[in-house]
């Protein structure tokens, strides 16, 4: 799997509410596909902005996507979500990015 051994970050404003929901939903998708990532954690957008360069993929609510424009420029994958607890949306976004194989 392309995502095996990757490092994944989920960010929201406080790093307490929606990022945790995201992490849980991401976990569901990874379990479904048997993906074994190196790391999956959640944090606040402000922490994420400096930490994100050490991660391969960053998930965030759409509101916060603009905070990660620099990451996209250096070739990282940023996945903005409309519904942070929707494992279906996460699955579809990963499929779109051709990362679920």
């Amino acid at each position: 799997m392309k995502l095996d051994n990757k490092k994944i970050l989920a960010c929201c404003a406080n790093g307490a509410g929606s990022s945790l929901m995201m992490e849980n939903a991401i976990k569901k998708v990874f379990n479904r596909y048997g993906i074994k990532v190196a790391e999956l954690r959640h944090c606040s957008v402000s922490e994420g902005k400096s930490a994100a360069k050490n991660y391969d993929i960053v998930f965030c609510a759409r509101t916060f996507a603009k905070n990660f424009d620099d990451l996209v420029k250096i070739g990282k994958t940023v996945i903005p979500l409309k519904n942070v607890m929707s494992d279906k949306e996460i699955e579809a976004a990963l499929q779109e990015a051709d990362l679920l194989n």
Partner: peptide
């Protein structure tokens, strides 16, 4: 951003 689908709000802080 704390307002989700179906008109549900989860107001919270750190």
């Amino acid at each position: 951003y704390v307002v989700f689908d179906y008109n549900v709000a989860m107001p919270h802080t750190t």
